[in-house]
Write a protein that binds this DNA or RNA. Structure first.
Lengths: 165, 165
DNA sequence: ATGAAGTCTCTTGATATCGAGCCTCTTGAT
DNA sequence: ATCAAGAGGCTCGATATCAAGAGACTTCAT
């Protein structure tokens, strides 16, 4: 089946036959799919009264395991946002009672963000919903294809994740 | 090589062994890779004094071919933004002299957005720069792997692009 | 000790986005 | 003709993001 990127690439080949636009076949699909996923996630989370950004922070803390706490800096690297954004997010989550801010006992500059019980429950519920929805999207592919796809994507993400980037 | 999603998935398997988090292997990589690409694109475009959003609009018009004009509505569907956003983008591009707004001769509600000569040149230059950068990112994969990856991604994007979505 | 450099978080100001509603014009049924 | 419904683009208010820089504290070399 044809997709929007096929049309996009065909248009470039017509307009700029001198250029090799092969890279777009992969990377434009990644960008566009990510936007579609954002919208789908937003919808899935709205059932749990959570915004995508709230989910990102809450689940980062949830994954850390007991006692469910991380520094803002650790949250930055996991969520790929800037520090100003994270400050703002923590403020709002704290106001909603889903996290609390504690002084870091071992570094007086630092802060620890801890998930509240309610925050943990909300994260767990939203994760279940998200996985269900993602499984539906991935039903297009066989198990083997999904594994293949994951492996190829890993080769592209690894340099970003490991080099300072 | 391991990436951030491997660590993320491992953490979920430890914290929620009851859940099947396999979908994340694919879709979390897509989302994270897209964010990395956004940043890389922003950097690549800054050499040409263009923002990513400007590139998106300009190249949509460029791909349309002579006379390089589309309606705001057509631009919406190609760039996946809302109409308010597109109005704002067109305003700013017009102010910079990269596009101009013309009345649609066949529908008095409508407007046509046309690329200026300078807009076309800037789009062409930025595209060349982007492709160069994307080629570097994709050098991790063989030609056959890139084709494989593109095909798998197409299967996921096609439903979004073809069904009303 | 002491000072310089680095780290961590927060503040600030600018800006882009979205969602909802509005107005104009078109379409199609009667 | 006329009217209701729809389509197209714009306005407006709220909000989330980023970049740059400030302040507090730590680290490390001297």
């Amino acid at each position: 089946m044809e997709d929007e990127v096929d049309r996009l690439v065909a248009a470039w080949r017509r307009e700029r036959p001198d250029l090799d636009v092969e890279p777009l076949e992969v990377l434009s699909r990644v960008s566009r799919l990510a936007r579609h996923l954002d919208r789908a996630r937003r919808l899935a989370f709205s059932e749990h009264q959570l915004e995508p950004w709230e989910f990102d922070v809450l689940t980062a803390l949830r994954r850390a395991g007991t006692p469910y706490q991380l520094s803002p800096g650790q949250l930055l690297t996991q969520t790929l946002v800037t520090s100003g954004t994270m400050t703002n997010r923590i403020d709002r989550l704290a106001k909603k009672g889903l996290v609390e801010r504690l002084p870091d006992p071992s570094d007086r500059r630092g802060v620890l963000v801890r998930l509240t019980d309610e925050g943990r429950d909300r994260a767990d519920q939203a994760l279940a919903g998200l996985l269900e929805q993602e499984r539906a999207i991935l039903a297009e592919l066989s198990r083997a294809q999904r594994a293949e796809l994951a492996g190829l994507l890993r080769q592209l993400t690894a340099p970003f994740d490991n080099i300072p980037g």
